[in-house]
């Protein structure tokens, strides 16, 4: 059992490092971690200031950071699979005795931790460009919520990543999947402006609760961040179970049809 755990951790560490090396030269990551967070912060805070709602500044800054984190995660799931496919290594990874999801977990976690940079960038942009007061009411809760949000988003990314194995158009679908998540999670505006029938969809998304937990820790939302953190843990476990089931099904399909290289 210990040996098994050790080998799993070794695979995760190896894929974590490998992904970090690949990321260093990847223009998409430079874009999603450095460029887009600056632009989204300027756009959203600028719009709120123009509309006379400067008090939404910190909310927009956290939302822009979350968008960066999500972008990095979604790009992760899609681009990793697409990269392996284009590099001709996906079939080998699927065929290897090490379960593919474990490799994907290592790579996803690597990107998730790197995506924290986007949060730093959005806070710096808010501070420098708009001189916003970025006081966090409960720093300890903020850090814990942030870590749980990262883990939860990674797990959600795994659910999507499993389906990306099936298509060569993962990149296209990934781009399209971004904005529905931003909208449904209320990353840049209060969820109350969305129609009520969309709320159930919002409530099953990790970014919604991550944003809420961070907002509550920052003192922007009157809620208990620790309770929301518990929900995030539950959500992560649910995502993991769904991802595992999906991976098994997808893996069976591509092995049965031998369709891995057909695209």
């Amino acid at each position: 059992m210990i040996n098994r755990l050790r080998s799993v951790l070794r695979v995760i560490a190896g894929s974590f490092t490998m992904q970090a090396k690949e990321r260093a030269t990847n223009q998409f990551f430079v874009g999603t971690l450095l460029v887009l967070p600056i632009i989204f912060t300027l756009l959203s805070v600028g719009t709120y200031l123009y509309g006379g709602k400067g008090n939404f500044g910190l909310y927009a800054v956290i939302g822009a950071g979350m968008m960066g984190v999500w972008n990095a995660n979604l790009w992760t799931s899609g681009r990793i699979v697409e990269g392996e496919r284009r590099g001709g290594t996906l079939s080998m990874l699927i065929a290897s005795p090490t379960p593919f999801p474990i490799i994907l977990v290592g790579k996803s976690l690597s990107n998730a931790f790197a995506s924290l940079i986007s949060l730093v960038v959005t806070f710096a942009t808010g501070l420098i460009a708009f001189r916003l007061e970025l006081d966090i009411a409960n720093p300890a809760a903020f850090i814990v919520s942030l870590l749980l949000t990262l883990i939860s988003m990674t797990c959600f990314g795994l659910v999507l990543g499993s389906t990306f194995v099936l298509t060569r158009n993962a990149g296209d679908f990934m781009e399209a999947a971004n904005y529905p998540i931003f909208i449904l999670s209320g990353l840049m505006f209060p969820l109350t402006i969305l129609p009520a029938w969309l709320r159930p969809l919002s409530s099953i998304l990790a970014p919604t609760w991550g944003n809420l937990a961070l907002g509550a820790s920052a003192g922007l939302v009157a809620d208990n961040p620790w309770l929301i953190d518990l929900y995030l843990i539950g959500l992560s476990l649910a995502y993991l179970m769904i991802a595992q089931t999906l991976f098994k099904k997808v893996e069976y399909l591509v092995r049965r049809d031998g369709s891995m290289e057909v695209f």
Partner: peptide, 12 residues
Amino acid sequence: VFFILISYAAGG
């Protein structure tokens, strides 16, 4: 839609 909703939240 995303950017329009931000504007809606900011300025109606």
